[in-house]
Amino acid sequence: MNPYQPVPAELVEIIEESPTITTYRLSPEKPIPFATGQFVELCVPGVGEAPFTPSSSPLVKEEMEISIMHVGEVTNHLKEKTQVGDVLGVRGPYGEGYPLEEFKGKDVYIAGGGVGLAPLRSLIYALLADIDSYKNVRVKFGARNPEAIIYKDEVEKWLKGDELELQLTVDSAEDYPDWDGEEGVVTTIMEDPDADIESGVSVVCGPPIMMKFATLKLLDMGYDPDQIYLSMEKNMSCGVGKCGHCGIGPYYVCKHGPVMTYDKLEDYDEVFD
């Protein structure tokens, strides 16, 4: 099979999540089943491609959702020029996702920031589908401001339910007098005396700067580097470990990641740059 060949995928729904983040629901010509945490290359014909981890449940095979922050050429084109009914291209899935088998029976401690909730939503769906297999699932999520919190309906549902423990914070609520939750970056709500750190696992996904400080916080809390699962993001062109761009030390994020434990990365600089 040609690894560079995208599969045509019809855009069936566009969901505005926040002023800067949109979810695109796609129906590929043939199903592209993925494991949670794996990524796909989403292609806007004639414009280019970019890597994204689907935000939808890995249990849904016929369709996938991809949540996108509009910051680059491909993503801005999606925002400005793409409509329901358009045909995009998808290829993948690529790389290593979250090792759910290894998570079983353990405390799962998740820290997310901003658009980082996209891959984490997929993970949360996967965990919820089999929630009795995990000890406790705790999610600490931070957004820039209340408006920037995505998946509001689901967040609401998770907050109300008792299957997982979700805590939210915003960097600043200055212009949002209705916000009665926590204020401060995500690391400020990451203390958790009840978390079983010794035999647990932690997961971090968010912008590079958030990942860096959340990782440092987790280390500080007592997690070992090999208990910290990072969802890495680098320039990924081929997606299949050949083109070289996503290299960190001897690893290619597209092939050995995107989910990688921190012990593999800690000796290399540029990890969070």
Partner: peptide, 12 residues
């Protein structure tokens, strides 16, 4: 090392 470059050749 290489990169993938797409050239538009008509609608979609």
């Amino acid at each position: 090392c290489f990169y993938l470059a797409d050239r538009e050749v008509g609608e979609e």
